[in-house]
Design a protein around this nucleic acid. Structure first.
Lengths: 205, 205
DNA sequence: ACCTGAACACCGTTCAAGT
DNA sequence: ACCTGAACACCGTTCAAGT
């Protein structure tokens, strides 16, 4: 492993690392249990080179998954600029769901590699938590959710997402989960006296 | 594997199976990655005997975890006999949380063994789903939750439970999750006009 | 029938040898 | 410095040989 403070890697070494990551994304999405040896071979490097770049298999999987999560996380700011806070939150959840399902192979790889420590939802921790913080703050300010809900609370409430089977008809189940969570967040919010139960349902980003 | 229709096993063979299960419960709770060879040895049998009783490691872990889940599931009926429906539901969730945390080692073993298929929450499927069905029906009848929530919806909403770290201060986080879910279930329920947000908090079974 | 334990297949990780 | 790939350690599963 090489950190930001050390001498920059030789360009060819740099490229090795990137190739490994690219191959890992493709390969682990297809089959979560692809051996390190196969990933190394397809990336055109020896196993030793793999372990020069990553301390172990888990570190690789984590980095790949983290990168993917950051993509969704980063879209939150834009959504908030375009729509009312409650619509932005719901659209973001929908995107998260699509991402989580598209990368389910990766998620399995992560579960297998990190069994025991580190839960799936908290992987993008930096970016994802930031995104949720933004979304919750905007909604709290708009009076569309109650105060005092932490990003951690929110993540825990939607954790069921990662239990859905991407090969199944997961959309309605995710929608029902989001409806329930939305109602839970709304309960006791200042802007809510007699509100329809989950009005976002009729909309589609 | 031997199913119910075949000739009953010899008493000594029967005892082997039970010893394996007992050792597995202890050992997997302590360390989720205990090898099959160790479990077999501590149970006093050869590896071949292990595989005569279980098709693979996953089947063992599943059977142990399923048995543990059934314990919690079966307590639902009694709770409903003793208390109002909403209190019974909350107390049952609290018990489920304590069980899930106590058996976290087992849960890890299961995650590792079944990575890809079968989510943790749905393992006890038979008994657990039955228990939830009872609890939801009673609450719907009492007007304390809205109609049309399936056991599957409920399981998805509390799935975050299995992400908590049993070595951490998980109780308040579980409580906040349950509060949010309770509010979500309550939204739009007939018996609710102006209800306190989550009144169960002040109570303790 | 049922049991044992050595043998097999396979994977993650390391390291001696090379450039 | 960095790379390669054979070697090592370890685990799940099978199977020949025994009772």
């Amino acid at each position: 492993m090489r950190d930001a403070r050390s001498t920059p890697a030789r360009p060819d070494a740099q490229r090795n690392r990137e190739r490994i990551l690219a191959v890992a994304l493709t390969e682990l999405t297809r089959a979560a249990d692809t051996p390190v040896s196969v990933i190394a071979r397809k990336a055109g490097v020896g196993q030793g080179t793999f372990y020069r770049n990553f301390p172990n298999r888990e570190a690789l999987v984590l980095e790949v998954y983290r990168y993917e999560m950051r993509q969704v996380a980063d879209s939150a700011a834009q959504l908030l600029a375009d729509r009312p806070a409650d619509r932005a939150l719901r659209e973001w959840m929908d995107r998260l769901a699509r991402y989580a399902m598209a990368k389910a192979g990766l998620a399995d790889a992560l579960r297998a590699a990190t069994s025991g420590h580190g839960s799936l939802a908290q992987v993008g921790h930096g970016p994802v938590t930031e995104a949720i913080t933004l979304l919750l703050a905007a909604n709290e300010a708009a009076g569309t959710i109650r105060a005092g809900v932490s990003p951690d609370d929110f993540l825990l409430a939607i954790a069921g997402l990662w239990q859905l089977d991407p090969h199944s008809d997961w959309e309605p189940r995710a929608a029902r989960l989001f409806d329930l969570v939305t109602d839970g967040l709304r309960a006791g919010a200042p802007g809510v006296e007699r509100m329809p139960r989950h009005p976002d349902q009729r909309a589609s980003g």
